[in-house]
Amino acid sequence: MLKNLNIEEILFLDIETVPLAPEYTVLNEKWQQLWERKMQFQINDGKLPHELYERAGIYAEFGKIACISAGYVVQKKGEPYFRVKSFYDEDEKKLIQNFFNALDSFARAGKRRLCAHNGQEFDFPYISRRALVNNLTLPKVLDIAGAKPWEVKDILIDTLQLWKFGDYKHYTSLSLLCELFNIPTPKDDIDGSQVAKVYWEEKDIDRIVKYCEKDTMAVANLLLKYKGDMIIPFENLESV
């Protein structure tokens, strides 16, 4: 099955998300109550709800998208390269709309499949939910509410689901799989847990973009590894 995947038809994605507000105290009373109710059903490690607000970015109802990176594999003189474009803007609606516009261009170029790590449970639904919050029309590839998994498996590829081999209880991070398969990853990147701080306190979106782009390339390399193909070295990463 994996051998039959045409890697050049796939658009690889990664998103970085942050809480809607820089800190819990900025929320109005209603949103504070809603956050507290949400946290009642989470493992809190003894922390109070306001102490868990750093996690808000992982929930589409309490977070927003800071960056979407989309990349694809190209061949140049018989050597694979990874070309990536990032979408970021303080105006989340504009960010998502620009990404949707690009999806149309990618589709016309033959890249009609999307791939992300844990995309089925995070990236794809998160983008779709935030699009609806921003009154945007979903592109066909993401307009899958109510669709059965087998109806979208050829369109939305998830490197985590491929690794599960049907084991629905198993979660493995992208960084762990990269280490397992000896896929080189940069050592100078921020950690995913630091993205909110970098966004709200340091206001360094460029740092987040670079992190997002390298994760997108890691997803591509992971799928290449699954297929038994040559992975792409970091020096062959091209930002456009």
Rank of each mutant, 00 (worst) to 15 (best):
S173C: 01
V152F: 02
F99P: 14
R207S: 11
Y168E: 13
P186S: 10
W35A: 00
R207E: 11
Y126I: 04
D143F: 01
F106W: 12
T185W: 00
T17A: 02
P19Y: 02
E8I: 01
V26D: 02
K210Q: 15
D215C: 10
R108F: 02
K94F: 02
Y171D: 09
R83N: 13
D14L: 04
K76V: 06
N98Q: 14
T17S: 06
Y226K: 09
R129H: 06
H170R: 15
I7M: 13
F106R: 08
F100N: 12
R83H: 14
C178L: 01
Y24D: 01
T17D: 02
I7H: 10
K203D: 13
E54G: 10
F234V: 00
Q32M: 05
A109K: 09
I231H: 09
F12Q: 08
E213C: 15
N101C: 10
L156T: 05
L5T: 06
K197T: 13
F82H: 06
C115E: 04
K210R: 15
K187V: 04
K197C: 06
V240T: 14
C212A: 11
E16T: 06
S175D: 06
E90I: 07
L52G: 01
D204L: 03
C67L: 06
M39Y: 08
Y88L: 04
W35G: 00
V18E: 03
N134D: 03
K169C: 04
T216L: 11
E213L: 13
L11A: 09
W150K: 11
T185S: 08
I68S: 04
D91G: 09
L114Y: 01
V18A: 01
Y72K: 13
L237K: 10
A102K: 09
